[in-house]
Amino acid sequence: MTSARGAVRAGVLTAALAALLCTTATTVSAASTESPSPQPAAVQADVPAGVTAGVAVFDRQTGTFTEQVNSAAQFRSASVVKLLIALDVLWNRSPDTLSATDRARIDTMLRGSDDPAASTFWSNNGSGAIVDRMVTRLGLTDTARPPSTHPGFWGYTALSARDTVKIYRHLLDAAPAATRDYLLGNLRQSTRCATDGYDQHFGIAGSFNRPWAVKQGWSGFSSGGCTAPTTAAAKAADADEAAGEPAGGAAARTSAGADAVDLSRPALHSTGVVGSGDRSIVAVYTLHPSGTSYGKAYTDIGRLTRSLNVPGASRPAGTWIGTWGSGVRVRTQATTESGTITTLPAGVEVLVGCQKRGQQVSQPPYVNDWWAHLPQYGGYITNIYLSVPDNQVPGVPVC
């Protein structure tokens, strides 16, 4: 077999590997049980450089927060507001009373983060009045309808991490059982590829083993890296959350509620419940420097989420490794002839469980017959696209 690593990339990859080993490339053993993590003496959230974050982790078993970082700070919600849209639809009614059409809309809105479905409910049910009603009903303190300059853009609703915890606490502890089971059931079925072609299994979904239920949000990116949308509605949606936000993002900060909400920087949010009995509620809101790629933001929110003290969480085994290239395919087997499961966001960090020899792949000037198994995707990528200096990754077991 010909060596796959030439001098062209050796220096860059060696530096990347050194940085990776210093930050995230340690092997994490999966817990055999979902025992709670110890209470920290202080906040342990590790916010990546350049990232603005709002974080809250609430342990329902003890009734206490284990993490709070800027938890009252307002962020534009992106698709997280779909939780409020769905709760408003079901307020004082059972899911069984929904029409087949509305039920299908809620299903795809929560599982695939479908924007046209959210826009239909937003338009039909009063737009910003939806947010006003839910603020009153749930006692939210940092949540506000979109600014008057953008009334139709539900993605500009202001939300905070601590208010998001309140939303999930209502859903878990106060909402009728039928509503709780229906909405959480949809969040447990979050699809890796959203209907607009974005990989939405970042943050909570990438950091912890199931059981979890998530509602994610993204805004201000040009490409989400997943396989192409399959529906006409999804193809019509743009990369900035369709009617949730103007194409390309706004160019300024606009006030929403009491504080100024940043409508410009790329936003990536991960919210949901984690662990047996939905023990922990996790809300992670992030803003990234202008021009940040989706893969970089995806990696940064993953590192932040993995650093958190989340009682009841079980963490997947493997080694986190950066990738390079765009449109990298995850395949069912270690061959280029096998089926494509999805594609990776460009430059994203992935969890590698093991590696094996398979078909030799040539990507000049590199040649390699080692393939990495990605347990969270259920498939393989050629080791050529791992940001490491050798064909075979040191320290990663053979499959």
Score class of each variant (00 low, 15 high):
Ser3Ile: 10
Ala4Gly: 15
Arg5Gln: 11
Val12Met: 11
Thr14Asp: 14
Leu21Lys: 14
Ala25Asp: 13
Val28Ala: 13
Ala31Thr: 12
Pro40Gly: 04
Ala49Tyr: 04
Gly54Gln: 00
Asp59Gly: 02
Thr66Arg: 03
Gln74Phe: 01
Gln74Arg: 07
Asn92Thr: 15
Ser94Thr: 05
Leu98Asn: 00
Ser99Thr: 14
Ala104Ser: 13
Asp107Glu: 15
Ser119Ala: 14
Ser123Gly: 13
Ser127Asn: 12
Ser127Tyr: 13
Val131Pro: 06
Met134His: 01
Arg137Ile: 02
Arg137Leu: 06
Leu138Asp: 06
Leu138Ile: 07
Leu138His: 05
Asp142Ile: 05
Arg145His: 05
Ser148Thr: 14
His150Trp: 08
Gly155Cys: 03
Ala161His: 04
Ala175Lys: 03
Ala175Pro: 05
Pro176Leu: 07
Tyr182Glu: 02
Gln189His: 13
Ser190Cys: 12
Cys193Gln: 15
Asp196Cys: 10
Asp196Gln: 09
Ile204Asn: 07
Ile204Met: 11
Val214Lys: 02
Gly220Ile: 01
Ser222Gly: 14
Gly224Asp: 07
Gly225Lys: 02
Gly225Tyr: 02
Cys226Trp: 00
Pro229Ile: 02
Lys235Ile: 12
Ala237Pro: 08
Pro246Arg: 06
Ala247Trp: 07
Ala258Arg: 09
Val261Gly: 09
Ala267Pro: 06
His269Gly: 03
Gly272Gln: 01
Val274Ser: 11
Val274Met: 12
Ser276His: 12
Tyr294Asp: 01
Tyr294Leu: 04
Tyr294Ala: 03
Leu304Gly: 00
Gly312Arg: 00
Ala313Tyr: 00
Ala317Tyr: 08
Trp320Asp: 12
Ile321Trp: 03
Ser326Arg: 01
Val330Trp: 00
Val352Leu: 04
Cys354Phe: 04
Gly358Glu: 00
Gly358Ile: 00
Ser362Ile: 11
Tyr366Arg: 09
Val367Tyr: 09
Pro375Thr: 04
Gly378Lys: 01
Asn391Tyr: 07
Pro397Trp: 06
